[in-house]
């Protein structure tokens, strides 16, 4: 069997890991808002400081976290290049036709780069410290108010968790079908793009059929265990807030307040 761990969950026990997933999701939303509200390097510095603290507390290796940045390297470079050349400022260092490099442009693009890096890092911290199952539970719980407008919250959460559960099984199956096709002489590695895409079709069709068959069997098994939607259902696992979440809440509130205050008083605004 292929490695069945997927996503980026880093399974250790830490202060951050043991926080309630709902609080972590809300914290992330607040944190992202703060990053966007920040108009100065001071504001970003607050966010960066808190984020660093979170990373250290989470026991996720710092190197692993920063490797995430590589994924957005292209966007980072593109944004900074565009901003360096097109940002209009007063202190000009160099110019040619419509392109110019100014002091303000340099500072602003540095600001944007910091902002991007912070955004990506804080989002990946959520997935590093929260397992997919916890995330689903958290989302379900947070969406509960939508039940009032008859939004099928429970069903949505169940679909998500079943999908998560079947990812490793279907990955396994893909591998098996691929091997079966290879044994019959199928070639997935050579040829141009179109040829390779066409080679995938004989893998996809059996995979799809098998997924449908599995879905039907799972449906039967669920029926046999008295499943009838979310209405009469109770939940065994209850998410519970602890002192950790209280600390998280205070920190989140402090970050947002700090950033807003800096913005209102215009401290260091670019």
């Amino acid at each position: 069997m292929k490695d069945v761990s997927f996503g980026q969950y880093y399974p250790v026990s830490s202060f951050v890991h043991r926080m309630d997933p709902r609080l972590k999701i809300l914290f992330l939303i607040a944190f992202i808002t703060a990053i966007f509200l920040a108009t100065s390097f001071y504001g970003l510095a607050i966010c960066a400081g808190v984020l660093l603290l979170i990373i250290l507390l989470s026991r996720v290796p710092v190197g692993k976290v920063f490797r995430e940045i590589r994924g957005i390297l292209f966007i980072v470079i593109l944004t900074s290049v565009l901003n360096i050349f097109f940002y209009r400022g007063e202190t000009e260092y160099w110019s040619w036709k419509f392109l110019s490099i100014t002091r303000e442009g340099l500072i602003f693009s540095a600001f944007l780069v910091c902002r991007l890096i912070l955004l990506v890092t804080c989002s990946s911290m959520l997935t590093y410290t929260t397992s997919p199952v916890e995330l689903t539970d958290g989302i379900e719980s947070l969406l509960t108010p939508l039940k009032w407008i008859r939004f099928p919250v429970h069903e949505l959460a169940l679909i998500m968790s079943i999908a998560l559960r079947f990812i490793p099984i279907l990955m396994d199956e893909t591998e098996r079908i691929k091997n079966a096709q290879k044994a019959r002489g199928a070639d997935f590695e050579s040829g141009g793009l179109i040829k390779r895409i066409r080679a995938i079709v004989p893998v996809l069709i059996p995979l799809l059929l098998s997924a449908l068959r599995r879905a039907e069997e799972l449906g039967d098994a669920m029926d046999a265990r008295c499943y009838s939607g979310g209405r009469k259902r109770t939940k065994y696992k209850k998410l519970r807030l602890t002192w950790r979440d209280f600390v998280g809440f205070l920190v989140g509130a402090a970050v947002v307040t700090g950033v807003v205050l800096l913005r209102v008083y215009g401290v260091g605004t670019l």
Partner: peptide
């Protein structure tokens, strides 16, 4: 009822 395929009757992770 317990069915045949062990993979297709577990709902949760």
């Amino acid at each position: 009822v317990v069915f045949q395929n062990p993979d297709n009757q577990t709902v949760a992770t």
